[in-house]
Design a protein around this nucleic acid. Structure first.
Lengths: 333, 333
DNA sequence: CTGAAAGCGCTAACAT
DNA sequence: ATGTTAGCGCTTTCAG
């Protein structure tokens, strides 16, 4: 890997000091006489010396690298989180090893293991659900872990999220207040803690306080993509629903376009509220009303939390809930 | 960083062999008696031994990680490339250190240096332009570099792209064939090699063969985002253009919506052809006709090329051009 | 087929 | 303030 052959030893020799001293100036240790420091820096510059981070990692047991497990970088939801993560990582001098898992349990395990083998100082994990096996790996590794935009059922590791239950409840209530009695709940797998537990609970809560009875027929599980939405549109109409809460923007736009193509007018005949307030909600016509999740911030805060954990600082609360808002646009009245 | 204290030495002792032998079985060296291998594997499993990749990297001078410099992960254009990169990286047992550069020259240099300090085995670079300084770093580092979706003016490093000039020319010709005389060219900075040289050349070429004279007034430089597009719409109308080639989808949708909101009917009054065929072109109404770039493949092929270079295999051609197509949808007639 | 031993380049006590 | 000396955990000759 290394092509440069200039080591700390070369610098030491050229500067007539010991490698310890060179190491000190490289690491900003104050116990170095200014004159010596200057001399060393001059040699470092002249020789174009670049400390070998691998050797450093081996000796110090710190790699200043954190592993990021992500279902899919090309999904804007996750890449927004990733951007927040990388920005604060950079701020704290860490680098990111990014690994796609496809949300696949086995891959998650594999990836986690290679990350740990690479001695990352910490891990940020994104995924729709945390399997028992993954949780087991987390606990026996001692490497700090933070879940970003994912729920940890028993708060063993750090996590940063919004309050999905409340956000969903608020959204559904908004629909209920507009007079809808048949409100569809359209989401990913109900087996996921966020979709199945938090969101569905929020949905039910809103129905309850609006005095609407829950009906299985209005619950739709779908993949999170545009095509799935287009296809789903007619099924939703057939269910008799006149409004829908949707947990993914791409899916929501698919449904919106599917509905529109079927001659349904949104919001006059059907109201929609989606969940991520991504650019898609702005592009769609009508523009989609949506929960606004601070995705970038969730990523940024996750990384900040992780830096504290890696630094062994005391963290008062490692389950962080960030605020959300509801952005009313043109798909609701 | 490491919490596990089980080293190769522990395994060696437990298995009554030398660490050299353990190393051999871990690395799949064939010179190990099956019985010995079995015994070692059994101990590895029992002790839950996981080789320390950092130590391995120091000793072998190979980190099996590659650095990826990306302007912005949260931009779908780049994250699509990134996904292709990571998938083949995984396939070849490499990991990815992802670093955002914001397309900022200084950050690119910084990031490149920390990547090299981390002893990455290779680098994939994405960016709109390659500065002299960056090129200088590339050449003196000896670490293999591949540009993904970026042009290298003098083919010093590997690169994977489509033929931007031809793709643009084809698109503009399509517009010209539909009878348009005033075709706008809307792109990012003309100082970028791709936008300024390749694409603009393609545009001019198409005009020429259609017998249309080039006019400065139809050239628009813009940022690549939705809002910029909306704003730009009226200026484009005022230019007298009746069709436009646009080099970014988000920008294109902004222009489309801006035009539509201004009462212009696309494609009857104005035709549009954009460049990335992303999901946005599908979501927009009317759906946008577009050049289809194999983004995922560009990333995948880049990484594949890099693996060859890292492996010191002979590569016949390190400047790879992938095919594109033109996908006609509803924004052209 | 297996072991011994010398590093890889750097950090971190421990001395001085 | 600076130098000495062990390692960090693993790969890799070189012997045998």
């Amino acid at each position: 890997m290394d092509k440069q052959t200039i080591t700390i030893y070369d610098v030491a020799r050229e500067a007539n000091v010991s490698m310890a001293t060179v190491s000190r100036v490289v690491n900003g240790n104050q116990n170095v006489k200014p004159a010596t420091r200057k001399k060393v820096l001059e040699v470092i510059d002249r020789l174009d010396y670049r400390p070998n981070a691998v050797a450093r990692g081996l000796a110090s047991k710190k790699t200043t690298t954190v592993g990021v497990v992500i279902p899919d970088v090309s999904n804007t939801f996750f890449s927004s989180l990733a951007r927040g993560i990388d920005d604060v990582a950079t701020m704290y001098k860490y680098n990111i090893i990014l690994a796609n898992s496809d949300g696949n349990d086995q891959k998650e395990i594999n990836v986690l293991n290679t990350l740990l083998a690479k001695q990352v100082d910490g891990i940020i994990f994104m995924g729709h659900h945390i399997t028992e096996e993954i949780r087991g790996e987390f606990s026996r590794s001692k490497t700090p872990v933070v879940l970003s935009g994912s729920i940890d059922p028993d708060h063993q590791v750090g996590s940063v999220n919004i309050d999905y239950k409340e956000a969903t409840s608020d959204s559904v209530s908004l629909l209920a207040e507009n007079g809808h009695k048949k409100i569809a709940f359209i989401s990913g797998s109900l087996l996921d803690p966020i979709n199945g537990k938090m969101r569905l609970e929020g949905y039910k809560k809103a129905l309850k306080s609006a005095g609407i009875k829950y009906s299985e027929g209005l619950i739709f599980e779908s993949e999170y993509n545009y095509k799935a939405g287009e296809t789903l549109a007619t099924r939703i109409l057939n269910s008799g629903a006149t409004a829908a809460f949707i947990s993914d923007d791409e899916l929501a736009v698919g449904i919106l376009n599917g509905l529109t193509d079927a001659g349904v007018n949104v919001p006059d005949d059907f109201e929609i509220i989606t969940s991520n307030n991504s650019l898609l909600t702005e592009i769609a016509r009508p523009r989609l009303s949506s929960i606004t999740q601070p995705l970038y911030d969730i990523g940024a805060v996750s990384m900040r939390l992780l830096t504290k954990m890696m630094n062994k600082e005391e963290v008062e609360e490692k389950t962080i809930i960030l605020p959300y808002t509801i952005s009313k646009k043109d798909s609701t009245k």
